[in-house]
């Protein structure tokens, strides 16, 4: 059987999206049967042969010219490009430094870092066409696996939805943290697919999967203010994974 050639690369990020695939311990043998990791440095020492790819999976934001170069090269070689995780999709937490990059660099490196050869971290769709987005910080293992299996069959997956976490939370018949505990949960505006992991153990949604389709941001911000959060706290909480704290909802 000819294995499907894929690459999994990482730009500026924490390795969590790559680790998510390695965390599919039970399924890894099957992954190995179906896919040839042409380039996946965290998993394999095989040297990239530079040939065409069925799919390239990308974790992380782009923050240096070298990363953009790598993206462009793999985009040219690949039928599909899949953006995985908050950093690749929106810049993720990396975006929180954005406009203060130079200032932070100086602070962290006692004035010796010039921020040279780097730019504020960007989502990868600024540089390449993206065929599929798998959200999350971290992403859900089943979404990555399901997407891989679909790509291997020659189709983009159709099961990734963009509705709010609330739908899944209600299906699990959870206590509503927002309504019944008056806690600042971001479930109503956050993209589901995680099966309401956090609210199901009584922890508010922090929005790690980014915004749902057409989020009611103003209404959500209003709710949080009613719960006693300051304007700044609302901004920081809602902006953690969605492209920084610059935008006022």
């Amino acid at each position: 059987m000819i294995r499907t050639r894929i690459a999994y690369i990482r730009l500026t990020s924490c390795s969590g999206c790559q680790l998510t695939l390695l965390n599919c311990e039970e399924e890894l043998a099957r992954v190995g049967e179906l896919f040839e990791p042409v380039r996946f440095e965290m998993l394999s020492s095989a040297a990239d042969d530079g040939g065409p790819l069925a799919a390239v999976l990308v974790e992380g934001s782009a923050a240096r010219p070298e990363e953009v170069q790598r993206l462009l090269d793999l985009r040219r070689r690949s039928r599909w490009l899949v953006a995985i995780g908050a950093c690749a999709l929106s810049g993720g937490v990396n975006r929180l430094v954005d406009d203060r990059q130079g200032e932070h660099c100086a602070a962290v490196y006692a004035g010796v870092c010039t921020g040279r050869n780097m730019f504020p971290p960007q989502s990868i769709d600024h540089f390449v066409a993206v065929d599929l987005c798998i959200p999350g910080c971290p992403p859900e293992p089943q979404e990555i696996l399901g997407a891989l299996l679909a790509l291997q069959r020659g189709t983009l997956p159709g099961f990734l939805r963009e509705h709010a976490v609330c739908m899944e939370c209600r299906q699990r018949e959870n206590l509503c943290l927002l309504l019944e505990r008056k806690l600042p949960c971001l479930g109503p505006v956050t993209r589901g697919g995680c099966n309401a992991r956090c609210p199901s153990i009584g922890i508010v949604c922090e929005g790690c999967r980014g915004y749902a389709d057409q989020p009611a941001r103003e209404e959500q911000a209003h709710l949080l203010r009613d719960l006693g959060l300051s304007e700044r706290q609302v901004r920081e909480r809602m902006g953690r994974f969605t492209g920084g704290n610059h935008e006022t909802p």
């Binding site: 430094v97 990059q101 932070h104 660099c105 602070a107």
Partner: peptide, 13 residues
Amino acid sequence: SPRLFEGMVLGRD
């Protein structure tokens, strides 16, 4: 790429 977490946290609760 430097990710500057020590700078990112400044000024936050």
